[in-house]
């Protein structure tokens, strides 16, 4: 048998068997010494697996296979470590939030609900978030997309374009509380408007703008120049080329960028605390009077710190995640619908 071309290879079931062996022995060690907790046992099992696999593979398959297996395992574990926080977060929110989340929760406000008693709901906050984020989107999307169009289509590398790009980058780094403070001092204190859902929408606009400009700019840049040239060569004016050729080609990416911006601001708490006045009642008018939002609803319920209000806070968090998922799903559908058929 020494005339084989291939060296000996460990069988396919080896990895599974070894994993079972490592977990088994890690649990045994934990049982007998009882020093490590659950986390320690898992770490121990992974380390055991790495060491055993490498030595085994080294003796049977040789050095190259051993290193290959070692790094493959390390890469898989890195993926698991990266995905673990997300998985636990979703699990925690869903398991704690599902208890209170029902139609009554979605269709009632917190008006006249005692913090220590169950009942009430998120409706007033849901409505507030939809209106505030909606207004912010209405303002930020046209400004953002037109800015990006100017940067890419008209001002190729001019001085003004460089300045705009620079300040958009600066805006990306503005902490959300600063945006809230700015609107609070400018809009509320200086001009004397009341705090309202609209003030919150203005603060959210500041946060959305740079994300939209950046995303749209990147998308427009990857539209092939051939398309523009072909269109222009047929005698089509520039504005029509942009409207009918460039934008539709990039629409999928632009919508994704807009959705990222929406998802970012829908969960913002800090600017809302300064610009809206928390309310427990339904206020359909974003331009006058206190208005709630889901993030401030969660904050408010947590600071009441009774078991019933904590349940409501978790259900509110779950509502927010679901809302953003619905936004994202709808946007993906719209993007697919408008994208040019290849």
């Amino acid at each position: 048998m020494s005339t084989q071309l291939r060296g000996s290879i460990l069988p396919k079931w080896f990895a599974v068997a070894l994993a079972g062996l490592s977990i088994g022995s890690a649990v045994m060690i934990e049982r007998t010494t009882s020093v490590a907790g659950v986390g320690g046992t898992i770490t121990l099992a992974v380390l055991l697996y790495l060491v055993l696999q490498t030595t085994w593979s080294f003796t049977v398959e040789g050095r190259r296979h051993a290193i290959d297996r070692l790094f493959a395992t390390l890469m898989y574990s890195s993926f698991v470590i990266a995905a673990l926080p997300l998985a636990t977060l979703i699990w925690t929110v869903v398991s704690k939030g599902i208890k209170e989340l029902d139609m009554n929760f979605l269709s009632h406000s917190m008006r006249s609900v005692s913090p220590s008693k169950p009942g009430g709901g998120v409706y007033h906050a849901l409505l507030g978030t939809l209106e505030q984020v909606g207004i912010a989107t209405l303002i930020a999307v046209p400004i953002g997309i037109l800015t990006a169009l100017y940067l890419v289509e008209y001002a190729r590398g001019g001085r003004l374009a460089k300045a705009i790009s620079f300040f958009v980058d600066v805006m990306t780094g503005v902490p959300s509380i600063v945006a809230g403070l700015f609107i609070y001092t400018a809009f509320v204190l200086t001009f004397g408007f009341d705090r309202s859902g609209f003030a919150a929408a203005l603060a959210l606009t500041i946060l959305m703008l740079p994300v939209i400009v950046r995303a749209t700019e990147e998308m427009l840049k990857i539209v092939p120049a051939d398309l523009r040239e072909a269109s222009l060569a047929l005698g089509i004016p520039k504005w029509k080329t942009i409207l009918r050729i460039v934008l539709p080609t990039a629409i999928g990416g632009i919508i994704t960028g807009v959705m990222l911006a929406v998802a970012r601001v829908a969960g913002e708490t800090a600017p809302l605390l300064l610009t809206t006045f928390l309310s427990q009642s339904i206020n359909q008018n974003p331009f006058a009077g206190p208005q709630a939002a889901i993030p401030t609803f969660i904050w408010d319920q947590i600071s009441s710190a009774t078991p019933a209000s904590l349940d409501r806070a978790w259900a509110g968090a779950l509502t927010l995640i679901l809302l953003i998922m619905v936004f994202y799903g709808t946007a993906k559908l719209i993007a697919r619908y408008y994208a040019p058929k290849a």
Partner: peptide
């Protein structure tokens, strides 16, 4: 924020007695 929950109970009772009134207390 110390009186948050006391205020909430009072606001609830007051609003129940006066359905036309709305009081918002931000702690």
């Amino acid at each position: 924020s110390a009186q948050k929950n006391a205020m909430a109970e009072w606001v609830n009772a007051f609003q129940t007695a006066n359905p036309g009134a709305t009081i918002d207390y931000q702690a």
